[in-house]
Design a protein around this nucleic acid. Structure first.
Length: 588
RNA sequence: GGGGACGUAGCUCAAUUGGUUAGAGUACUGGACUGUCGAUCCAGUGGUUGCGGGUUCGAGUCCCGUCGUCCUCGCCA
């Protein structure tokens, strides 16, 4: 080792020892006769002093030191003189009086300094990611990520789970997200697909008898990016045989309790709150509601049905819904212009026809330009149902059910943030269960799987597969944290005829099924045990636990929104020779 | 694919809404200083205002296109 200690560990008890530290020059403070350098590594910072001890040569050398030079310094640990202790530094009680210094490597002047206050633009941070990763914030996050993964590995090992690796080069499957494809050289014209998840492999492992599987698995989905979505991401993937929903959820409950305790010092009470998909859509308009605050949706459809106000009546009588939320005490906060912005928001982002609003005046009456169109008794009834109090702002959307969900979910999320309705440090866990098996796809004019095609319906819903697929509920469960879907799982289908029925319902004919999933259909006939599992999004969990609003900040080398890596330049062009070997011609 | 924000010195930002020579902090360079720790003080270097076109007597500012970063809708079994 080139060093005896790290830059974060020397304290008063080391005084008198001769030590050697290695690290980067964080800052220099030159006082002519004495020169201070803060030496930084990922463990901390230590003040090193170039004074009389090192002689004039080392002081001369010290004068030439610049930001981010890499040094090895040797000297005695000394207590800092009276009054110069730095309480902000873990090593602030001591300093190292340098007797020997070696520049292990100089540095160009960095485009930004890891210790600088203002965060540089993200493109620059990503281009010089090695400098960005030197920042203590990034180091804290990556350490957090490491600790969370270490806890997961330990937890599942103790429960008897076996870590099995599954292929990255797989085959493309229909449905789901767009695949990342890898061309085959040996069989030109054919392609591997990078896994969207190890779903089928882990089911095969259950059939193979490895009744508790776990993997930290990299997954790939070629879809557009978001603040909480990367094209390649990491899942904690697990599967269990001979289980029911509660068994899988119970395992995750235990993990959540442990992570919350060990990482955040929080005592999470079990059982976690649990609601059905239908309930979540009714109360919050979304299947991953943020339960850190209330402001639940209120249904006004029955009141609107016979209302003379056409916007209400048309929606209610036309099969749509009239739903609302009450932003308590927010009437002052949103001016006419502010409400116009909210209106434009629900129109542009969610396709709502409009936004109806009332401010509750001092008498408790609903006031707005719309009020004259609605009979006073209905206004009063709306006010009662919405628990309206003076100063409240009532926001109402009259539209198709799906639109009211999206628009009011969007409003609730936005207002929750703008009105600071929750403590951003809070972490709230819950389950949403019993998702529909299928969603009607207008484009495809058919049913599509809400979760994935291997999801088992509830036992009591099996008959409805043929009669009313839309009413079928799945043995599915999503872990929700602060309004993010942190994970999702299901009990899988383990018998072949049922699997085939579901494929048919999804419009996957027998031949296609055999072609794409033949191995699974075969395997199901060789003694497949009942099984189920779940996958948690590790990046998202780290993001939430780290109090970050952006998934890139908890990934060492993330992609930009256009799915590029600005440091390496990926994706990049390849040689003509490589393309020839693959039998690929660029037509663009 | 749609909507929006941003792009000015190495970095973070400003520029009185179209008006003289584009500024500040920081970084950088040189100097001063024996106890600093966001060191301080003095001096200095540093600009294709992302790129291309247009309008105008005049464009960082307005218009069109384009590139890039971010947010978002669609998309994400």
């Amino acid at each position: 080792m080139l060093r005896t200690h790290t830059c974060g560990e020397l304290t008063a008890e080391h005084v008198g020892q001769e030590v050697t530290l290695c690290g980067w020059v964080d800052t220099c403070r030159d006082h002519s006769g004495v020169l201070f350098v803060d030496l930084r590594d990922r463990h901390g910072r230590t003040q090193i002093v170039f004074g009389a001890e090192g002689g004039p040569e080392s002081r001369e050398l010290a004068r030439s030191l610049r930001s981010e030079f890499v040094l090895a310094v040797t000297g005695k640990v000394a207590p800092r003189p009276e009054g110069t202790v730095n309480p902000k530094l873990r090593t602030g009680e001591i300093e190292v009086r340098v007797t020997r210094v070696e520049v292990l490597n100089p540095s160009l002047t960095p485009p930004f300094q890891p210790s600088q206050r203002e965060l540089p633009g993200e493109d620059l941070r990503l281009k010089y990611r090695y400098l960005d990763l030197r920042r203590p914030d990034m180091q804290r996050t990556l350490l957090l990520r490491h600790r969370m993964i270490a806890i997961m590995r330990d937890y599942f090992d103790a429960l008897g789970f076996i870590d099995v690796e599954t292929p990255i080069l797989g085959r493309s499957t229909p449905e789901g997200a767009r695949d990342y494809l890898v061309p085959s050289r040996i069989q030109q014209g054919t392609f591997y697909a990078l896994p969207q998840s190890p779903q089928l492999y882990k089911q095969i492992l259950m059939i193979a008898g490895y009744d508790r599987y776990v993997q930290i698995a990299r997954c790939f989905r070629d879809e557009d990016l978001r603040a909480d979505r990367q094209p390649e991401f990491t899942q904690l993937d697990l599967e269990m045989a001979f289980v029911e929903m509660d068994d899988v959820m119970g395992v995750i409950d235990g993990l959540v309790v442990r992570l919350a305790k060990e990482i955040l010092g929080l005592d999470v009470k079990l059982p976690l709150p649990r609601m059905t998909y239908d309930e979540a859509m009714e109360r919050f308009g979304h299947d991953a509601p943020d339960l850190r605050f209330g402001m639940e949706l209120v249904d006004l459809t029955d009141l609107a049905r016979d209302c003379e106000f056409r916007v209400f009546r048309d929606a209610a009588q036309g099969g749509g819904r009239v739903r609302a939320l009450n932003a308590k005490g927010a009437a002052e906060r949103y001016s006419r212009k502010g409400i116009d912005e909210l209106t434009a928001f629900v129109q542009n982002d969610f396709g709502a026809k409009g936004l109806i609003w009332f401010k509750v005046d001092a008498d408790g009456k609903l006031a707005s330009p719309t009020a004259k169109n609605v009979a006073p008794d209905i206004l009063a009834a709306i006010g009662r149902r919405m628990d309206a109090a003076p100063g409240d702002l009532l926001l109402i959307v009259a539209d198709q059910f799906e639109i009211t969900c999206k628009a009011l979910y969007g409003l609730r999320k936005r207002l929750g943030t703008e009105l600071k309705l929750f403590d951003p440090r809070q972490v709230h866990f819950s389950w949403v269960v019993e998702f529909p098996m299928f969603a009607w796809d207008d484009e495809e004019n058919g049913w599509s799987a809400m979760h994935h095609p291997f999801t088992s319906p509830r036992k009591q819903d099996r008959e409805m597969l043929k009669t009313d697929p839309g009413a079928c509920r799945a043995q599915a469960y999503d872990l929700i944290v602060n309004g993010y879907e942190a994970g999702g799982g299901t009990i899988r289908i383990h018998n072949q005829p049922l699997q085939q029925d579901v494929f048919r319902l999804l419009g996957i004919d027998d031949e296609t099924a055999k072609n794409r999933f033949g191995f699974l259909l075969d395997a199901l006939q060789y003694g497949a045990p009942p099984h189920g599992g779940i996958a948690l999004g590790i990046d998202r969990l780290v993001m939430i636990f780290g109090g970050l609003s952006n998934i890139r900040d908890c990934i060492a080398f993330p992609k930009t929104q256009r799915a590029t890596d600005v440091m390496t330049g990926a994706p990049g062009e390849v040689d003509a020779k490589q393309l020839r070997e693959l039998g690929i011609q660029i037509t663009r």
